[in-house]
Design a protein around this nucleic acid. Structure first.
Lengths: 334, 334
DNA sequence: ACTGCTCATGGAAACGATTCCATCAAAGTT
DNA sequence: AACTTTGATGGAATCGTTTCCATGAGCAGT
């Protein structure tokens, strides 16, 4: 019936305004033009309801706009909030956001980076997994990357280029220290720490915080799945009934710890004190309400997105404060 | 130092293989070619590590690949799982996913749809808010849309085009009915229902399920924010101390109900029975563990993405089953 | 041997924007 | 008056791919 709805292009606008396409382009992207021409062009554009096609622009400038975001798991409330921050910043720039989930797996991450290159996306906010070696070629290819929540494991021979990637992080070190001090203040001496592989920095911070009292057996790593988290938590509690307090590196491990304790009939906070990294909405609904180290997840995302948009200023690493929120999951050692 | 790293193009491959660019394109996209040429081209492509630029392709085909996903709130666990489903399906097609959050606001949604058009994205999975009028022009512009979790409010004079949009839904009606039957089975007669504006279909299902016993004052709507949810929950409990059971239309309202009850010293399940729509991980950690109507969120996303990818078959609406999971938040009326 | 057919192939057009460059007029400088 | 400078302007090139179309080779049927 109706014609196939050809898109109105810059050519149509130029024709209606009686000018060349170059002039239209200039006017619309803020170049110089006489007041009269400008008005004619703007008029024509609104009359035709013209919206420039991102496709043409992208091809010409050899880059597609928008921000790519790589997170380990979008169903994790922490990363969801981080994503929300990125989305909210991107929206203020009018840029679309493409999301990929890595599952904390370097291989999948490399795949996704490949796909970004294919799309000529050149702005990425990423929560890196693994040692980040796959990032080096991408950086050389002109990608501008900002790390969020973690930076890459810095091996001794690591390429310099990686060290220069800006990052927006929560102050893990201070967060862990505060939590540990809080627990030792309550009399606890045998404190366990549950962390995922991606959280080696928190693991290290924990080791530093407990200092001489460190018992390496109490620092237990988990893979990035619910099952693995539960296994790690239950394993620790069974293997070492002498631990009186546990700190977890993220909310999934916190959940696992609560479940495992409940299953093993270990009462919180009577038999076990628990501090969880990241304040999720349910922490308050839990029985008992959980004492947590809150992180500004949304802020982390927002700031990271801001950094990746302003490539002008040489960006540096930003560290945002954490906060210990005391609820009901910790008690004195008994 | 090193050259500015020009991207290797199809031309380079053609040159190295000693054929024309058209042939390279055909080979790479599965067109016909002699076995020998095919091999030469493939060889050259791998030797040069050639990856076709999505930019060129997109411009030529007048559409950028990928799937767009519009959800009200990515930090809501339900939509996060839905998004995860979409992402997982999209990945199996090798397609990138662009996410936008609408905040359940038709205006923001319209903005986002506009931005999609600008990007020439033509495949959208959306959780629509409002009456969906802004979708009609988009559909006419050739967008293929699949609704997830909800369909649009169907006003009497609604355009036919909207009624033909395929949708993937949870079986709300059955879920609500099962929950209501469960509660009445426990002796409850005054059952409250908390729902967000976007959940009018569940609201209607609730009205139908309680039938004659309907007390319109017990059906209370909330806006899409934590505060509004809390206000609605607290309001209901204060205004009508005679309600002995509450069903909530989503998890945020469930959270609000728990909090409000706790604040008002209404004990669950002794004084109030609570059933929440959507089984989130924390439902089990809550005190008491919440009885829920579980929805296959990830599946909904996956199937919706599948539908939007296969535009070949005329797609129809899919309804996925819900399941009542009884935990500890309901008791007999006292 | 001629005709008709299929099939592989490459040149060139197309997609829609930005941007280089040449042109031209008007204003300013000597 | 002759020159330079400035600024607006439009034509054309460009980005990398897909696809239309013409060409020519090979082959079978008569």
């Amino acid at each position: 019936m109706s014609s196939p709805q050809r898109r109105t292009t810059i050519k149509d606008v130029a024709e209606l305004a009686g000018v060349g396409v170059a002039t239209v382009s200039r006017v619309l992207s803020g170049g110089s033009a006489s007041a009269e021409t400008r008005e004619r062009v703007l008029d024509a554009a609104t009359k035709l309801d013209y919206r420039p096609s991102a496709l043409g622009r992208n091809l010409r400038q050899q880059r597609s706009g928008g921000i790519a975001l790589l997170v380990p798991d979008i169903t994790d409330n922490f990363y969801a909030r981080l994503a929300d921050g990125v989305l909210s910043c991107a929206r203020s720039y009018g840029e679309p956001v493409t999301i990929g989930v890595t599952g904390d797996d370097p291989e999948q991450e490399a795949d996704l980076v490949g796909s970004l290159l294919e799309q000529s996306m050149d702005r990425v906010v990423a929560v890196p997994s693994g040692d980040g070696e796959m990032w080096a070629p991408a950086l050389r290819a002109g990608l501008s990357v900002v790390f969020a929540d973690r930076r890459v494991w810095r091996a001794p021979g690591q390429q310099r280029v990686l060290a220069e990637v800006p990052a927006v992080l929560a102050d893990d070190r201070a967060g862990v220290r505060t939590a540990v001090e809080y627990l030792t203040g309550l009399g606890h001496r045998k404190i366990g720490f549950l962390a995922r592989h991606g959280q080696s920095h928190r693991m290290q911070a924990f080791r530093d915080a407990v200092g001489d009292a460190l018992d390496e057996e109490l620092v237990v790593p988990a893979r990035a799945s619910r099952d693995s988290a539960y296994a790690a938590a239950a394993g620790l509690l069974q293997r070492r009934p002498d631990v009186t307090a546990v700190l977890t590196g993220d909310n999934m491990l916190g959940e696992a710890a609560v479940l495992a304790a409940r299953e093993l009939d270990v009462r919180i906070p009577r038999d076990l004190s628990l501090v969880m990294f990241d304040d999720v909405p349910w922490a308050e609904l839990c029985a008992p309400p959980l004492t947590v180290v809150a992180q500004p997840a949304q802020d982390i995302g927002y700031r990271a997105a801001e950094l990746v948009m302003r490539q002008g200023r040489r960006p540096r690493t930003v560290t945002l404060p954490t906060q210990l929120i005391v609820r009901g999951s910790c008690g004195p050692r008994r």
